[in-house]
Amino acid sequence: MTHIAALAGIALACGLIIYLVFVKVPQKVKGLEKTEQINAILPGANCGACGQPGCFAYAQALSQQPDLVTRSPCSMTLNDPERVAQLEKALGVTLDASELSRKAVIHCAGNSEVICEYSGAMTCKAAAQILGGYKRCPYACMGLGDCAAVCPQDAISIDPDKNIALVDQSRCTGCGLCVAECPHNLIELVPAGTKIVLLCSYRPLRDIPGREKCELGCIRCRKCLKACEHDAMEWNKEQGIVQIIQDKCTQCHKCIEACERRGLIDLSKAHEEDPVRAE
């Protein structure tokens, strides 16, 4: 009995001392009120995506140079309208959240066939070292979850059937930590207002002989281009892919219907209309 009481007593004393210091010690350091105020708005995740070693350091930098918020934005804050409003008030600037906020998109529909058995280290980076991965398409998502492992929001999950990574857009804060992880460079940070995205990274200009795309891969038929009634699509000759002008897009979904390969999806409905899940 005594040991429980003693341990509880020590713990209580420790807690009490922390509380007393927190409440009773006067705040002697001046000039930090603004930093504290900004720090309260920031998410406090200390993810480091803004380039500062922590949220408090970011708040300190922001209090000295408010324009830092546009140069190295905190995407976690920008995804929350309430926080954006508070930050605007605290910094005295206006922010266009849809302009700055980003979402991660994995450009692969994940239908590529597995062409060999891989039993090495279960990371995408290791698998990509051997013949560019074990799937037929050299730009396929291998689904070993390097991106999911670094996601601070647990927004990326691995589809067990198709073995590809899926981003939960409602959870994604656009911190961009996953982008660097993908050895096939499939992940892109797109503006949060993006409507239609192409779920394929196979581009003819970087064709590899003998490595074909899957039956969901873009075949450059340009049917989507013809189907669009709002001039929201144009052909990028340099890259050999279709590009969507998001401002003109009305989300009529004509292009999605026209696409025989089901390569285009509406990002806002990514989970409902997932070409992988729909099958």
Binding site: G15, V25, V29
Partner: peptide, 19 residues
Amino acid sequence: LVIASLVQVIELFIKKTNF
């Protein structure tokens, strides 16, 4: 327990008194 809370107290204290 003691070391962890002690360091927390010290951190809190110097944050308030000597930035």
